[in-house]
Write a protein that binds this DNA or RNA. Structure first.
Lengths: 222, 222, 222, 222
DNA sequence: CATGAATGAGGCTTCATTCAT
DNA sequence: GATGAATGAAGCCTCATTCAT
C-alpha cells in the first residue's frame, strides 16, 4: 500500500545522489524544525540545488515527508530484525527489541518528530506505520503465549502498551534530554517488560533472559 | 509558569460569551483538522463573529491554542482527581486513574490531537504538560513503594511507561476506532498495570484492589 | 446557471468601490494583454491595492475573468435591447441589432478578446454565452418568419451565421483596425442581412425598414 | 512572410520521424487542451522522447505552435483548392468551398482551437492567416461580380461575413456537437449564401449552381 | 464591543529552457 | 541525434494580523 516508493526515481547516479541529498536534508530539517516550519526552499538551499530540482524528484513537500516516514519505518524494522533474529527467548527478544528501538531513536533523533508529526500530515500513513508495527509485535507475542513464555493476554493490547511505553521513554530521554536513557531507567524498563509478560509464577524478578526456546520474529518499539 | 491564563479577559457578560464561543469552536476545529489546517477565519466564521473580534480576546492563533491545552490539562487532572480521591489502594488508584483517562479521552476526542499537536506548536508547553502529569504520578507511585504496595522501581520511568501505554491505547481505540476500548483490552490493561506495579510475590493475578492504605493524589494517563 | 454573481460581495461602499476598481482594471488588462499575460499582481498594482485584497473579492484569477464575461454578456444584451425595443420591422431590428453590437464593440474593444478568450479559459461559459445569445436571436427570427417578414429557414443556423458575420467584421475592423467599420462595409452588411432574411420576391433592394409589425426582443451580434 | 518553415530541420530520416511525431502530438494536445494547458513535457512524454529532444527541432513552444498553424493553413487551402477547381459557377464555388471547409474541420477538429487560439499566442500570425484567406476569397468574389454572377458589393466585407458564418457554424456543430452539421443546417447555409451573393432578380431561391462561367481560385471558410 | 476591509510577506509549485554527457 | 538533470524566474494564492469606523 503506502509502501510504494512513488515519485520520479532518478535514472543516473548523479540524479540518485541529488535525490539522496534532498532526503537527508529534509530529514534533518523536518526533524529539527518540524514540517510546517520547514520550507522547500530551506531544503533545497541546504542541499545546494535549485528549488526547481526538488520537484524533479518529489511531487510535493508532503511527498518527501511521506517518503521519509516509509523510509524510517523500513530502517527501524530492519534494525530490530537484525538484532533480534536468532534469539530464542521471547522475553529477551522483547527486551532487546525495545533497547534497539531506543538506541535507534538516539541515533536518529529526528525519527520521533517526523513519525509523530506524520499524524498531522498524513493520518493514514501514521496509522499504517503503527498498525504494521503492532501487527508484527502481536504475532511474536502470540507465539510466545503458545509457547508458554508469555502470559495469556490480548496480544494487540500488550503490543500497544509496550510501544507506548517505549515511545514515551524515548520522548522523555532521547528527545527532551538528548541522550540514551540512563541505566536505572533501562533497568526499570526491563523489569517492567518482564513483569508484564511473564507467565504467572515465573520470573517477575528474573533479571536476564530466561531459558532457550522457540525463536521468532517480533517488532520492538514504536 | 505557562499556567497564566493571560490575554485580554472580557469585561462584560456578552464579551465572556463571545470568548467562550471562540474557545469551543477552536477546540472542535483544532481537534478535528489540526492546528495548521484551521484558520482564524474558520474559527470566527463558525463562531459567527468577525475576524477582527478574534483579536479582541486572543493575541494570536497560537495563544488560543495554548489556552486550550492549559484548559484541557486542568480539566483532565480535575476529572481524575475526583474519581481517585478516597481510594486507598495504590494499585486501584492507578487502575481507576487510567480508566478515567480513557473515559475522558473518549468524551473529549479532540483532546488527543490538541495536546499532542502542541508538541509541534509549543514544545515547552507540551513538555510542561507531561512533566506536570508525570510528577504527580511519580509522587503517588513513590508513596506506594514506601507503603510496600508498589514494587521498588524508578518511579518516573514507571510513570512514563504507564502514560505511554494509556496514550497509545487511547490512540488505538478512542482516536482511530472512535469508541472506548472493549472489555478484553481493559482487562489486559488492568493485569498489565498490576503486574508492572505489584511487589514480588504479590497479586500478579489479583483482579481487584488490594488492602487499604495511604491515600494520595496521582496522575492518571497521558 | 453561470449567471450567479458568486464571489464574496462587499458589504460597504468602500468595498464596492475597490471591487469595481479591480473589475475595471482587469477588463482593461485582460482585454489588452490577454488572460495569461496578465498577472494578478498587474491587476492589483494598477488598481492601487495589495495582492491580498484581490482575494477578498475574487476566488481566483479565473473567477474575475468569468465575472467579466458575465458582465459583458449582460451589458451587451441590455444595450441591444434598449436600442431595438419598439422597432416593428424584424429586418430593421436585426440591422439595428448588428449595428449596435458593432458600436458596442468599438466602445468596449476589450470585449472581443475577453469573450473570445473565454473559450480557452472556461469553454462552458463561452458556450453558454453564445447559446444564450443565439437563443434570443433565433426566437426573434422565428417570430419574423411567422409574421412573414423573414424567409423560412432554420432559425438557429441563421442566428449563428449572422453572429459569425458580425463577429468577423468586428474582428476585422474594430480589433485590427481600431475603429468602427467604414460606411461601405456597413452598407454591404445591411444588404447582406436583408438578402439573407428577406422572403422571396420581397425587398432584396429595400434599403430601410419595411412595414410595421409585431415588436419583439431579439439578440443582436456576437 | 511568416510562411518560412524556419527552425532546425532534421538531416536524417530518424530525425524527420521524430520531428513529425512531435508535430502530431502537439496538434492533438494543443487542439484538445489548448496551448497554455499543454506543456512541452506533455508533448515529449506522449511522443516518447526526452524533453531535450524537443529543442533539437523547435526553438520554443511557440515555434511549434506556429508551425502547426502554417501547416493547417496550407492543408486547408489545398483541400479547398482541390475540390473547387474546375467549377464554373461562382455561387457553386462558394458553396462547395464552405462545405469543404466544414468537412475539413470535422475531420480535423483540433483545427479550430489551434487556429483560433493563435489569436492569443501570435496575433500577427492569426491576422495573416485570415487576411490571406480573405484576400483569395475576395478576389474570387470580385471576379464573380465582374462576370455578373455575384451582386455588386464590398467584396472583402462579404468575404469576412461568409468566413464568420462558416466559422460559427463549425463551432456550433463540429466543435460543440462533435459532428458535421445536419442537413437542414447545410440547406439553410446554402440558401443563405445564394441570397447573399445572387445578383438582384436572379436565383434567390435557386437551389443548385447556375450557369458555367469564369473559373477561379477562392478561399472557403475560416 | 464588534466589524469588514486591507495588508504583505511568504509559501508551494510550474515550466520553458539550457547543458553536459 | 538523444537524453536526463538542473535551473530560476515567476505566478497564484493563503493567512495571520492590523486598522479605521
Amino acid at each position: 500500500m503506502q509502501t510504494t516508493t512513488s515519485s520520479k526515481r532518478p535514472r543516473t547516479a548523479r540524479g540518485e545522489a541529488t535525490r539522496q541529498k534532498l532526503l537527508e536534508t529534509a530529514e534533518a530539517l523536518f526533524g529539527t524544525r518540524g514540517f510546517h516550519a520547514t520550507g522547500v526552499a530551506d531544503i533545497t538551499r541546504k542541499s545546494g540545488v535549485s528549488q526547481g530540482t526538488f520537484y524533479v524528484y518529489f511531487d510535493s513537500k508532503e511527498e518527501i515527508f511521506r517518503e521519509l516516514v516509509r523510509d524510517l519505518s523500513r530502517r527501524l524494522r530492519a534494525a530490530i530484525q537484525a538484532r533480534v533474529s536468532g534469539i530464542g527467548s521471547r522475553l529477551e527478544v522483547e527486551e532487546v527489541g525495545l533497547r534497539t528501538f531506543l538506541e535507534f531513536a538516539a541515533a536518529h533523533r529526528n525519527l520521533y518528530r517526523i513519525v509523530f508529526e506524520s499524524q498531522f500530515i498524513d493520518p493514514d500513513l501514521f496509522r499504517w506505520y503503527y498498525e504494521r508495527m503492532a501487527e508484527g509485535y502481536a504475532r511474536g507475542l502470540e507465539r510466545g503465549m503458545r509457547a508458554g513464555q508469555v502470559r495469556e493476554q490480548h496480544a494487540e493490547t500488550l503490543a500497544y502498551c509496550l510501544m507506548g511505553a517505549a515511545h514515551f521513554l524515548g520522548m522523555r530521554w532521547v528527545v527532551w534530554e538528548g541522550r540514551e536513557p540512563p541505566p536505572e531507567v533501562m533497568d526499570t524498563l526491563r523489569s517492567f517488560i518482564l513483569a508484564a509478560l511473564s507467565p504467572p509464577g515465573k520470573g517477575e524478578v528474573v533479571a536476564r533472559g530466561g531459558a532457550g526456546e522457540v525463536p521468532g520474529r517480533s517488532g520492538g518499539g514504536g
